[in-house]
Amino acid sequence: MEIRGEQLKIGYGDFTVINNMDITVQAGRITSIIGPNGSGKSTVLKALTRLLAYKSGAVYVDGRDLRDFSSKELARNIGVLPQIHSAPPDFQVRELVGYGRMPYQKWYERNDAEDDRIIDWAMRSTGVWELREKSIHECSGGESQRVWIATVLTQQPEILFLDEPTTYLDIAHQLEMMQLIRRLNRENGIGVVMVLHDLSQALEVSDWIVVIKDGEKYAEGAPEDVITPKMMKEVYDVDCSIIRVPGRGKPLIAYHEI
C-alpha cells in the first residue's frame, strides 16, 4: 500500500500550516516525520489519515482518492493513534482493544470468535495480555500506551499512523515503545508512519525519514543520509556531530556542549 499526498495545502480555519507539499508513505517500512515544534508534522499526518480535511491538493491510497473511502473501509486499511486520546478510566483493557474491530462490524454486530482471536493476537503482540482484566486506570503510562497500540492493531491495518507515541513516557518506556514498533514492523510487516520528537530514536528505528520545516518538506531519505550536522543546523538551529561508536550499528547524535 502506498499513500501519496499531492500538492497538499492544509490548515485550520484561515490559518495555513502546510502550503504545498508532496509526500508519499509506504506500507512495509517505518517512516518517521520529524521537524521542530509547529513545523506541521502532526498536521501532515492528520491530512494523510483524513482526520483533517485538506484545503487543496489530493491524497491517493494506492491511486484511489482518499475521499472515496467510507469511514469503515479506511479504518480497515489504516490505523491511527492520535496524540490526544482518552478512555473513561474504568474501561477494561480487553474491552477497549475490542473497539478496534468496529470497522469490520455492522452497527448491530458483536465480536465473534474470529474477532476475539484477533483481539487476543493484538494483545499478545503488544504485551498487554496480562493486563486484559484490568481497567485503564490501573495501567501505567507505558502500559496504557501499549493498550492503545493494541487497539489500533486490532483494526489489522496495513499502515499504522502514530502521532508522537512516546511523548509523556519515561526513557525506559520510550525505548520499549520503539522496540515494540520495530517488532511489529519486522515480524508482522506492518507499515508504521510516526511523528517523532526524539531524533536519536528516529535515527535508530526508521527506514525512511521525512524532515519538515516551516510547513515545507526540507528533506527525505534514509536516516543516515538525512540526519546530518547540516540539517540539524538549518532545521533546528542546533550544533551537533554525528559520531560512530564501535560495536553499534547506527551512529549517534552528539549535541555540542551547552
Binding site: 482526520l51 469511514s71 480497515r76 489504516i78 490505523g79 492520535p82 478512555a87 470497522p103 452497527w107
Partner: peptide, 23 residues
C-alpha cells in the same frame, strides 16, 4: 439501546472514534 456502542466510542475522543471508522 441501539446507541450503546456509539455512545461508548464517542467517549474515546473524536479523533480516536474517527480512526475507528465512526462517522
Amino acid at each position: 439501546f441501539l446507541c450503546i456502542k456509539s455512545a461508548n466510542t464517542l467517549q474515546l475522543g473524536d479523533e480516536m472514534a474517527k480512526s475507528l471508522g465512526v462517522n
